[in-house]
C-alpha cells in the first residue's frame, strides 16, 4: 500500500513541506475572499450613507431572532470542527468524524433556517425589492437598497457555506476511508480554515443586516 505520510509531489522537499504549503495556499485564498466581501461591505457603506433613513427602515424588518440563532449555529459549527482537528491530531479519527459530522449538520441547520424559513418569511412579507415591495412611501428607495443588499449578500454567503458543506462531507468521507489521518492532515486543516472563514464572514454580515438599523 502507498504510504501517504512520506509520498509527496516531486517539486517538494518533504511531505511536511507540501502540507505547510497547502495551508499557506489556503490562507492566501482566504485573503482574496476578504477583499471579495470587502467590495460588498463598501456597497453597504455607500447605500446606507446616501439613504440612511430608508436603509435602516428596511433593516428593521429583518428577522433578528433567526439571524441571531444562525450566528450561534455558525460559531458552534466552527468550534466543533476545531475540536475535531485537535482530536484527529492526537489520532482520534472516529472522534473527528463525529465532530465534523456535527459541524456539517449545524451548517445544514443554518441553510434551512436561512433559506427555507427566513427567506420564505421575507418573501411572504413582500420584502423582495421587486414590483410589489412591501415598504411604500418615502422610505421605499432606501429600503429597497437594504433588501437588495440582504438578498444578494446572504445568497453569496450561502453559496460559500454550500461549498463548505461539500468540502466537509468530502473530508469526512476521506477520513472514513483512511486517506487522511494524523499522519496526513493537510486537507483537514485546509477545509477547516475555509469553514471557519465562512463563519467570520457571517459574523460581519450579522451586524450589517440585523443590528445597525435597529438604533432609535
Amino acid at each position: 500500500m502507498h504510504d501517504e505520510a512520506v509520498a509527496h509531489e516531486f517539486q517538494y522537499a518533504s511531505a511536511s513541506h507540501q502540507a505547510d504549503t497547502a495551508v499557506a495556499g489556503m490562507w492566501l485564498f482566504l485573503a482574496t475572499e476578504v477583499v471579495f466581501f470587502g467590495a460588498l461591505f463598501l456597497s453597504w457603506i455607500f447605500a446606507r450613507h446616501f439613504n440612511q433613513a430608508g436603509f435602516d427602515a428596511g433593516a428593521e424588518r429583518s428577522e433578528l431572532e433567526i439571524g441571531t440563532i444562525n450566528t450561534v449555529i455558525l460559531i458552534t459549527g466552527s468550534l466543533v470542527y476545531s475540536l475535531g482537528v485537535v482530536l484527529i491530531e492526537k489520532g482520534k479519527t472516529r472522534a473527528f468524524i463525529m465532530c465534523a459530522a456535527a459541524a456539517w449538520l449545524l451548517g445544514l441547520a443554518f441553510m434551512i433556517l436561512k433559506f427555507a424559513i427566513e427567506w420564505r418569511h421575507d418573501l411572504d412579507r413582500h420584502m423582495f425589492p421587486g414590483a410589489d415591495f412591501g415598504i411604500t412611501g418615502d422610505l421605499a428607495g432606501g429600503a429597497k437598497l437594504f433588501w437588495s443588499f440582504y438578498f444578494f449578500g446572504t445568497f453569496v454567503h450561502g453559496v460559500h457555506l454550500a461549498v463548505g458543506l461539500g468540502l466537509v462531507a468530502w473530508v469526512i468521507l476521506r477520513v472514513w476511508q483512511g486517506a487522511f489521518s494524523a499522519a496526513y492532515l493537510a486537507p483537514v486543516l485546509v477545509v477547516g480554515l475555509y469553514w471557519t472563514f465562512v463563519d467570520i464572514v457571517w459574523l460581519i454580515l450579522y451586524p450589517l443586516i440585523y443590528l445597525i438599523g435597529r438604533a432609535t
Binding site: 439613504n51 433613513a53 430608508g54 412611501g137 418615502d138 421605499a140 428607495g141 432606501g142
Partner: peptide, 19 residues
C-alpha cells in the same frame, strides 16, 4: 423626488415622492 433622504425636522413624514 426622494423626500425621505433628507427629511426636515418638526414636520410629519408625509411628503410623497414625485419620482
Amino acid at each position: 423626488l426622494t423626500p425621505e433622504k433628507r427629511r426636515v425636522a418638526s414636520y410629519p413624514p408625509i411628503m410623497p415622492s414625485f419620482s
